[in-house]
Design a binder for these strands. Structure first.
Length: 426
RNA sequence: GGAGGCGUCGCCUAGUCCGGUCUAUGGCGCCCGCCUGCUAAGCGGGUUUGGGGCUACAACCCCAUCGAGGGUUCAAAUCCCUCCGCCUCCGCCA
């Protein structure tokens, strides 16, 4: 939810942002009108209410005939107050829904346009040239099979399509990656968190995931108002909801591990093979609470931590600055790190970091006290590692002609010093 | 899953049975000032949050806020309903 003050004082800033997103400006006019109507409704109600309260005091002191007379008079007033109160409620609701329909005001630096209008910020490392090395790379499905690391057949048998078992070195790989990510985060001053992946409706609602397409991508528990999170961002954003944080405690940096669940509705036919796009995966997510002023700098730090992790894994990747129209409603800017996937011959998203400013906290009612002033807090999130895609990139990038896979140096200590994963079958 | 108890403006607490003088009591903590060689003590004052009006986003006035949302009533912290949370006991379980 955007700051109502910006809507009132600088509606053109929002209109410009909508333009950059390629979205309609109608929502802005609707919200402005709703704000005016709301304030009028508040004024009428409060005026009558005040009169009623004054009357009430007289009633309390009066007795006998005088009291009866007063009661007769105040009864009508009471009816009016009720009506005006109801009208105010309606106006508030309309205002709130209009306000919620406005996505966050994109950053000045955010490229305008849609999905294809991203800007490549940098390319790090060089994709391996397998032709020059003289062999055809195997895809992660084949590698996962011969290493005994990924069992897709049984995943489908037990849970359905887009499910998998990580087995043997595959399971080891996940644990190593999680530990390496958590260690990096801890060394950078993060608080490590294991977050619930099942949340109540208010948490899911507060982060806005139910707005987008009515929550098409979100699993809901049958017969209960509980939801499976698609990212621990949901739990971590709700973590400090309805709290006033101490200004001195900022920035609050959390590294949260949780399973993530996505229905992947609408992506039928995309990435149907392997573990690039699955209904469930585990992830270590960085989540930050900080001041609005510091948010852009913190965003860069998040990006730097993501890059550090990918570099330790010796992956070739690029950083892209996502265009306005491709941002979620809560982000003002987003960077994706995309790793080179050899058998696809292209870069694929491995991590993503967003600056959501005070869009989420306003809705979840998280604020900060600085001195004697209470003000808004910014939240930012960034992937440290989404296990399945990280595994895909590692296996494909570091494979050797015989089907073995070299482990990146930084990962070896988390693997008992093992340097190479050897095939266990052909 | 069953039974019972509880939820008051940072923390503790009075008030809830019997609705109006609750503009919510008192203590602790914290802030400002006074006093005192310094400190402590003492004394005086302040200390929920959101919204609206007016404006310098000051002061001031108003409205809401006693876990949340409804209801009854001229009037609700107080009565009724629903939900949420916490605690105790039983059952079940890792």
């Amino acid at each position: 939810m955007i700051d109502p003050r910006i809507l009132r004082d600088e509606p053109d800033r929002i209109r410009a942002s909508q333009g950059k997103r390629g979205a309609s400006v109608d929502v802005v006019d609707r919200a402005l009108a709703a704000d005016t109507a709301r304030r009028a409704a508040i004024a009428s109600f409060e005026e009558k209410r005040s009169a009623q309260k004054a009357f009430g005091k007289q009633v309390a002191q009066a007795a006998g005939e005088e009291k009866q007379a007063l009661l007769a008079q105040v009864k009508e007033l009471s009816g009016q107050v009720k009506e005006l109160e109801a009208a105010q409620g309606v106006a508030e609701e309309e205002w709130l829904s209009a306000l919620k329909a406005i996505p966050n005001v994109v950053a000045e630096e955010t490229p305008p346009g849609g999905e294809d209008d991203f800007v490549v910020v940098e390319e790090v490392g060089t994709p391996r040239d397998f032709a020059a090395e003289g062999f055809e790379p195997r895809d992660h499905i084949e590698l996962g099979r011969i290493l005994g690391a990924i069992d897709l057949e049984r995943g489908a048998k037990v849970s359905g399509s887009r499910f998998y078992f990580l087995t043997g070195v595959g399971a080891q790989l996940e644990l190593a990656l999680v530990n390496m990510a958590m260690d990096q985060a801890r060394n950078a001053g993060f608080t490590q968190v294991i977050a619930p992946s099942l949340v109540r409706r208010s948490a899911m609602e507060g982060t806005g995931y139910l707005d987008q397409g009515g929550g098409d991508d979100v699993y809901r528990l049958e017969g209960e108002e509980m939801y499976l999170v698609g990212t621990s961002e949901v739990a971590m954003a709700a973590y400090h909801s309805e709290e006033i944080l101490d200004g001195g405690s900022l920035p609050l940096r959390y590294a949260a591990f949780s399973p993530c669940f996505r229905k992947e509705a609408g992506s039928h036919g995309k990435d149907t093979k392997g573990i690039i796009r699955v209904h469930w995966f585990d992830k270590v997510e960085m989540f930050i609470y900080t001041t609005l002023e510091d948010a852009p700098a913190e965003h860069q730090r998040l990006l730097a931590w993501e890059k550090e992790f990918l570099e330790k894994l010796e992956l070739a990747y690029r950083v892209v600055d996502i265009a306005a129209g491709d941002l979620g409603s809560s982000a003002i800017r987003k960077f994706d790190c995309e790793a080179w996937i050899p058998t696809q011959g292209k870069y694929r998203e491995l991590t993503s970091t967003s600056n959501c400013t005070d869009f989420q906290t306003r809705r979840l009612d998280t604020r900060v006290r600085t001195g004697d002033r209470i003000g808004p807090v910014a939240t930012l999130n960034g992937t440290l590692t989404a296990i399945t895609r990280t595994i895909v990139a590692i296996l494909e990038t570091h494979q050797q002609a015989d089907g073995s896979v070299r482990l990146p140096k930084a990962l070896q200590p988390y693997f008992g010093g093992v340097e190479v994963l050897e095939p266990v079958k052909q």
